[in-house]
Design a protein around this nucleic acid. Structure first.
Length: 153
DNA sequence: GCCAACGTTGGC
DNA sequence: GCCAACGTTGGC
């Protein structure tokens, strides 16, 4: 099992929305490096730290698990979708998605500020590759973040 | 709303 | 294949 950090803008889709839905298609990823990770490295059962970006307090806010493996993202074929990609086709899909299942909120969100100011997290992609939407988290950092967020493991 | 970082596009 | 122009992300 690997640990990942997936970013979402809470105005668009928040951890509360995921808790309500139980599971959701994590669609709309339109970055090749993120796509390649979803396709090649993200596995069923992997743990995902859900992170809120572009908001008042950017933070890790909860955890989810990956259901199944990557599959074509239907929104790429939908002209009405903001994620429509006219260069893609069902015969040659360009973008993939995975499904996430809600696990828990962190009782206390772990903020980007906390993470940036603690040297133990200096190697995290979140600190120096902030724009990547699908990030690797090493097991030790993941455990620390959950512990600081008040989650028993 | 600004702007730095960085990803993508397309002409050559 | 390079790289300038351009677009997007996301913290502040």
């Amino acid at each position: 099992m690997r640990d990942w950090l997936f970013k979402t803008e809470p105005d668009a889709y928040s951890i509360d929305d995921l808790a309500r839905d139980g599971r959701t298609r994590w669609d709309g990823i339109r970055n090749y490096q993120a796509r390649n990770r979803l396709r090649d490295e993200v596995n069923a059962g992997d743990r995902v730290l859900v992170y809120h970006s572009s908001c008042a307090v950017p933070a890790v806010v909860g955890i989810a698990t990956v259901v199944g493996t990557a599959e074509p993202d239907p929104s790429q074929f939908d002209p009405e979708s903001p994620y429509y990609d006219p260069r893609s086709s069902p015969q040659a899909p360009r973008w993939v998605m995975v499904t996430l299942a809600y696990q828990a909120h962190l009782p206390t969100p772990v903020t980007l500020k906390q993470i940036k100011t603690d040297p133990v997290f200096a190697e995290l992609e979140l600190v120096h590759r902030g724009r990547l939407s699908i990030q690797v988290v090493d097991p030790h950092s993941a455990a620390l973040i959950l512990e600081r967020g008040g989650l028993q493991q």
